[in-house]
Design a protein around this nucleic acid. Structure first.
Lengths: 194, 194
DNA sequence: CATCCTTGGCTATGTTCATTAGCTTAATGG
DNA sequence: CCATTAAGCTAATGAACATAGCCAAGGATG
C-alpha cells in the first residue's frame, strides 16, 4: 500500500543493477519487483511488459554509451577522435559487461532511434575525419561491426588464448583507422541508423 | 509408444529447423517435442536439459560453418584465402540467419572446443598468409570480431540506412586484409580459442 | 473539511515452459 | 521365452509472464 515511488526510469535503474550484478539472464520481472519491494504485477502499471522493459534498458544503455562517446570525441578530430571513440567504447563494455550484454539488438523503432543517436556520433567523428556520404556510412558500419563484435566476444569469454586483449584491440583500432577511405576535404550532415 | 527414433542429433536437427523457420526464440523444448511428435519430457532421455540442447545446437552451427570455411579456404592462400573466408562466413549467415543467431556465445568447454576448430581454420589461413604466433592470434581475434560483429548487426537489422551492404562488407574485408601485420616467410601450428 | 477520482498498489488466476518422478512398454539378446 | 534396458508416457511442481479486478492513497476540487 505504501506507495513505492516507482516509475519507468526507476524500474530501468533496477534492471540495470541486476544486469550488472547477476548478468542479463537474471533480468526478470520477478527479480525487478523483488528489488523494488513490490509484487510483480505492480510493474505493469509502469511498463507494458517484459519486452518493453528490455527495449527501455537497451535504449538507456545506448544513450549512456552515446554520452560517453560524445564526450570522448569532443574537441578531438581525425585519428585522435577515432582512437578515443574506440577506447571509450571498449572501456564502457569492460566496465559494465552485464549491462552491455543486456542490450538487445532487435529492429524495434525505439532502438533504431537510439541507435541513430549513436551512429550520429560516429558520423560526426568521421566527418571530422573528412568522410561523408556513402563512404561515411560504409565506414560507420565497419566501425560498429568491429567494435561491437570485439565487445561481444570479449564479454562472452570467447577469446581464450593467452595473448593480451589490449594488444588485439589496438591492432583492430589500427586496422580500422588505416583502412578508412582516404580523408577528403569536405563536410555535410547525416542521421539515423547506418 | 511407437518408438520415435530420436537421438541427440535428431533433436538438434529439429531445433535447427525451428531456429531457421521461426527464429531462435522459438527454440523451446515444447516446440522441439511437438515437431518430434513426442511429449516434452521424452526429450530428457536424449538431452540433459535446455541449456545442453542450446550448446549442442551451437556446436553444430560452429562445425557446419567451420566445414564450409575449411572448404572455401582449401587450395587458396594469402589474400585470396582471406577473401574466400570472409565471403563464406557472411554467405552462411545470410543463408541461415536464425541458425546463426541461435548460436550461443558462452564460455562452456564444449563450445570452446568447437570454437577452437573454427579458430584453427583462421590460423591456418593466416599461416598461409605468413603470420604466426602472437601476431596470428591478434589477427584472428580481429577477423572474428569484425566478421561476427557484422553478421550479428546485419541479421538483427541494425543497418538501416540505404547503402549497399555488400559494399560495406567489402570495405570491411579490405580493412582487415590491408591492416594485417606484414606477411613474413615462416610457419608453425597452433590451436584452441584465440 | 469533505468528496471525488485517478493512480499505484494488491490478490487471485491462468498460461506456458522447464524439469523431475515414477510407470509402462518396446526392443534386444541371451 | 524371459530379463533387462532404453524410450516413451502421464502426473505434478515450480518459475516466470500476464490479465482481471479490487482497494486504498492522496492530490484536486467544491
Amino acid at each position: 500500500m505504501a506507495r513505492a515511488g516507482l516509475s519507468p526510469a526507476a524500474i530501468v535503474d533496477l534492471a540495470l543493477r541486476i544486469a550488472d550484478e547477476e548478468g542479463p539472464a537474471a533480468v526478470t520481472l520477478s527479480a525487478v519487483a523483488g528489488r523494488a519491494g513490490v509484487a510483480t504485477p505492480s510493474l505493469y502499471k509502469h511498463v507494458r511488459n517484459l519486452a518493453e522493459l528490455n527495449t527501455l534498458v537497451s535504449v538507456r544503455v545506448m544513450d549512456e554509451l552515446a554520452d560517453r562517446l560524445r564526450e570522448a570525441v569532443l574537441g578531438r578530430s581525425g585519428e585522435q577522435a577515432l582512437r578515443a571513440f574506440m577506447d571509450t567504447w571498449r572501456g564502457y563494455v569492460t566496465a559494465h559487461p552485464g549491462r552491455y550484454a543486456a542490450m538487445v539488438q532487435t529492429a524495434r523503432p525505439e532502438l533504431t532511434e537510439a541507435g541513430g543517436r549513436l551512429v550520429d556520433i560516429v558520423l560526426a567523428a568521421l566527418r571530422a575525419y573528412g568522410l561523408e556520404g556513402t563512404d561515411a556510412i560504409h565506414a560507420t558500419r565497419c566501425l560498429r561491426a568491429a567494435v561491437h563484435g570485439f565487445a561481444i566476444l570479449e564479454t562472452a569469454g570467447a577469446f581464450g588464448l593467452p595473448a593480451d586483449l589490449d594488444d588485439s584491440y589496438e591492432l583492430l583500432t589500427n586496422m580500422i583507422i588505416s583502412g578508412l577511405p582516404k580523408p577528403a576535404r569536405d563536410h555535410a550532415g547525416g542521421s539515423a541508423t547506418t
